[in-house]
């Protein structure tokens, strides 16, 4: 993608400033320069000018090389659209981080060197700290240059199992998932921790809320699928734990969920996918436009899958 190459080139700009400023300033700089200040007072730390400059230059070079490598990898062909979208997300993150690192390194160097050049006897940082922040913000500029993250296109033809909704029809799905086993285990864990905290290990008081909160969130979950998308609401607390807007969904399907393949029981997040697994067995699986997948186990996932596909093809 061309914009990513332009962004990768832009990551080099602050490093160019670092290199260029050395050519202009090196013969006027003392061998040791002020490199540390506390608040607005005089400098309280000094370093060799060459070493400090080299450090900033190397940080910029590393960031710049990482950016070019990331852009080059992104240029290689890949068939699976989901994998391509995920890869470009990684490339964007590398470019933005690279821009911030290169910018901050250059900002730090220019700020300190300029402070010494202005008043070698008593260098003050003052407003020049803003140069460091400006450099850090270079990542934001890179983000703008790189453009919005790519999204998977929604196929023009609705999937075969889409619910066929007439123009005057409205539909919504709602179900409550209960997991007495998971709830029991988590409450038992809370009880054991409370008992231990009260008797032998008072530090555990701090950890007691963890299984309790997990129990409140996953013990009873309300799942709704409608024109707003998919929503998971923790039943006891009434908190929305997950909301996937309809326009983020490529397609929905019913699949068999093997907890081992999705990272275990409970709310699981693994690279490229996340899931609420309350039991093994049937589940609703969504393919999202950012290349990720989301799954939630439920007794009859075919109904919400067909509904979401149907709603999707209406708004598509």
């Amino acid at each position: 993608m061309r914009r990513l190459w332009i962004a990768a080139a832009a990551v080099w700009l602050p490093t160019g400033v670092t290199a260029g400023s050395w050519v202009l300033w090196s013969d006027r700089l003392p061998s040791r320069i002020a490199t540390h200040w506390s608040g607005s007072g005089p400098a309280d730390g000094f370093s060799p000018a060459t070493g400090f400059w080299l450090g900033a230059l190397i940080a910029g070079l590393v960031a710049g090389i990482a950016a070019v490598v990331a852009a080059a990898i992104d240029d290689r062909r890949i068939e699976d659209p989901a994998a391509r979208v995920r890869r470009t997300a990684t490339t964007r993150a590398t470019l933005i981080l690279g821009g911030s690192v290169a910018g901050a390194a250059a900002g730090m160097w220019v700020a300190t060197a300029h402070a010494t050049l202005t008043d070698p006897a008593d260098p003050r940082l003052g407003w020049r700290f803003g140069l460091f922040l400006l450099g850090l913000a270079w990542g934001g500029v890179i983000r703008l240059i790189a453009g919005p993250p790519p999204r998977i296109d929604v196929p023009a033809a609705p999937p075969v199992d889409a619910l066929d909704l007439g123009p005057t029809e409205r539909a919504a799905f709602s179900t409550t998932l209960r997991s007495p086993l998971l709830l029991g285990v988590l409450l038992a864990a809370t009880a054991v921790m409370l008992a231990l905290a009260a008797t032998v290990q008072p530090v555990l008081w701090l950890a007691c809320p963890v299984p309790l909160i997990a129990a409140l969130v996953s013990g009873q979950v309300r799942v709704t699928a409608d024109r707003r998308g998919l929503r998971l609401v923790a039943g006891f607390a009434g908190i929305t734990v997950k909301h996937i807007p309809l326009e983020r969904i490529v397609r929905a399907e019913a699949a068999d969920i093997n907890p081992a393949a999705w990272g275990g029981w409970g709310y699981r997040v693994t690279p490229g996918r996340s899931a609420l697994v309350l039991r093994g067995g049937p589940g609703l699986v969504l393919d999202l436009r950012d290349g990720r997948r989301f799954a939630v186990t439920m007794p009859d996932p075919r109904t919400p899958a067909a509904l979401l596909n149907g709603l999707r093809s209406h708004t598509g």
């Binding site: 007439g166 005057t168 029809e169 409205r170 539909a171 919504a172 799905f173 709602s174 179900t175 509904l307």
Partner: peptide, 10 residues
Amino acid sequence: MLFRVDVAAA
């Protein structure tokens, strides 16, 4: 469960 209504139905 699925709620499905038709606003044009009698």
